[in-house]
Design a protein around this nucleic acid. Structure first.
Lengths: 114, 114
DNA sequence: ACCGTATACCTTGTGTTGCAAGATACCTGG
DNA sequence: CCAGGTATCTTGCAACACAAGGTATACGGT
């Protein structure tokens, strides 16, 4: 149920994290949980498809980096288009939240009938 | 795209409107647009299925009211269960928004590493 | 050596749900 | 009489979050 809320915000949130520097999938998952204090936990089965979508739209670019030990990691880096998309998405998000809040709180001061 | 954001909030928003008194479908649609200043416009093809869902879950109850002129209107009224559900949904929503905002804004003061 | 666990990536199938498009019916104004 | 506004309802589609499963590498314990 609550997972429906996440729709539409995942892309934004991923782009936001990448805007601070390249990251790999697993890192993103744990960083999300940490920052949101558990309010935004997402499994890797959810995560990777989002990355592919972002990649296909040209918002991120992957680079495989072999590790001294362990399996190679796929690091994602934000493109200029991704930066632009992030701004758009954040503006949409803020506008949306504002709209919802305006409905949730009766507000009293907006008596401009249709 | 932006329509994905709406997921999970529609039920809450509808229940919230009904918590101020019974309303019928069309009324809800126009009230939503008015209050959110166009940020939350929803077609009737979206609206009615939500009402059925809410009704099936026992959160709202419909009453047909014939009009002096025009077609009868189906007014929905919030049940006690609906009131309870509304509170839960709003708490979830606020928690979710807080989580997202915490990710969007680097915050600087939460350096409690995992 | 072997097994469990952690890291790390990927794929498939399923269920929810918002939406566009279309249908019906009543009323009013030109 | 017909166009347009009110009002409800149905169908089919598409996006997408998620669980469950799969692969591979490394490491600690027995």
């Amino acid at each position: 149920m609550k997972s429906q809320l996440r729709r539409g915000t995942l892309e934004m949130v991923l782009l936001r994290l990448l805007s601070e520097g390249e990251m790999y999938g697993y890192e993103v998952a744990s960083e999300l949980a940490r920052r949101s204090r558990g309010r935004f936990e997402v499994g890797d089965g959810t995560l990777y498809p989002v990355f592919y979508r972002l990649e296909k739209e040209g918002y991120v670019e992957p680079t495989w980096r072999p590790q001294d030990r362990g399996v190679p990691r796929k690091y994602y880096r934000l493109t200029p288009e991704g930066t632009e998309a992030l701004e758009t998405l954040m503006a949409e998000w803020r506008g949306f939240v504002e709209g919802v809040e305006r409905i949730l709180t009766p507000a009293a001061d907006e008596e401009q009938k249709s």
